[in-house]
């Protein structure tokens, strides 16, 4: 910080202030242009999704509707299709995330002890899963043999323990200060108490990061759903959205008693369903930002 102010001071001395200003504006505009490509599509979708049916004309370009309406949202949120998909997504996300975090953290803590018997071998076996995967068909047959077809655990368990996560968590645990653990050991603190009462409270920021990662990846689960689920009423929200956007008649997907076609244009319905599906991600995203700032993410990305 001080170095920056020194530089600033010096440049103003040399009379570079004006050119520096122009430079900052140009850089700022370029970045604003890049960032707006990430934000504007959402704004467009959100605005159209609130357009009233009477103000909507298909195929005509406009950015600001003459009349607003939440009709599309009421129809979607009341539809049986949405409720089924929401149930599936919530189950996969909120049952999967704790399993995911516990499995990864437990295994990582175990491997962080260097004097563990067989630790090296287990470490190698974990790493190997990062290098080589059996492939789609063997995985599919495996899930079938385990009787998990049409079971949401088929979407939860295969991704619940990942070599990369275990390795990042492991290096985090082995960098924790050893004195606390040693002192606790002298006081007769057992392994489990040590893990839950000393190690985990020290790792909250890291755990929060991986919890958010798990939440997002389960919420975004799409392929494992179309692979392992056959019952259409069990499909999660990503599949629901994909169907709504890509089918010509959406009333079957929305699944509601009223006749949709006369009420709300399909396009508005489609955009509203995208907003509904992406909404939870947008809600937890600010919390994730907080943890980028803590630097955990950088360490994680660097591996």
């Amino acid at each position: 910080m001080t170095q920056k102010t020194i530089v600033k001071h010096r440049s103003s001395h040399l009379g570079m202030h004006a050119s520096e200003r122009i430079y900052q504006v140009i850089i700022g505009l370029l970045l604003a242009l890049i960032a707006s490509t990430m934000i504007l599509p959402f704004l467009y979708v959100i605005i159209i999704s609130f357009t009233d049916a009477t103000a909507y004309v298909s195929g005509v370009f406009y950015l600001w509707p003459k009349k607003w309406s939440t009709e599309a949202y009421t129809l979607i949120l009341r539809g049986q299709g949405f409720l089924n998909a929401l149930k599936a997504s919530c189950f996969i996300t909120f049952v999967g995330t704790p399993i995911n975090v516990c499995a990864n953290a437990g295994l990582a803590y175990m491997l962080s002890k260097d004097d563990l018997v067989g630790g090296k071998l287990i470490n190698r076996l974990v790493m190997f899963t990062m290098l080589f995967g059996a492939g789609m068909i063997p995985n599919f047959i495996n899930i079938r043999n385990l009787g998990l077809i049409n079971n949401w655990f088929a979407n939860i368990l295969p991704g619940a323990c990942g070599a990369w996560t275990v390795m990042v968590m492991k290096s985090f645990f082995s960098e924790l200060p050893k004195d606390l653990e040693e002192a606790a050991e002298v006081d007769g603190c057992g392994t489990l108490r040590m893990f839950f009462q000393i190690v985990l409270p020290l790792s909250l920021a890291m755990l929060a990061t991986f919890t958010l990662f798990a939440l997002v990846s389960y919420w975004n689960c799409y392929f494992s759903a179309i692979m392992y689920l056959t019952d259409t009423t069990k499909m999660p929200l990503q599949v629901y959205l994909q169907k709504i956007v890509l089918t010509t008649d959406i009333s079957e997907v929305v699944d509601i008693q009223d006749d949709l076609r006369n009420k709300v244009p399909q396009e508005v319905m489609r955009m509203a369903s995208l907003v509904v599906v992406v909404f939870p991600i947008l809600c937890i995203y600010p919390f994730m930002q907080k943890y980028f700032a803590k630097g955990v993410m950088v360490g994680a990305v660097k591996g």
């Binding site: 499995a103 990864n104 059996a134 323990c161």
Partner: peptide, 17 residues
């Protein structure tokens, strides 16, 4: 502590092989 993770890897990464 490591058992759940190991079981998941065993059942969903090694068993399919």
């Amino acid at each position: 502590l490591g058992l759940p993770g190991m079981l998941i890897l065993l059942f969903f990464n090694y068993l399919p092989m």
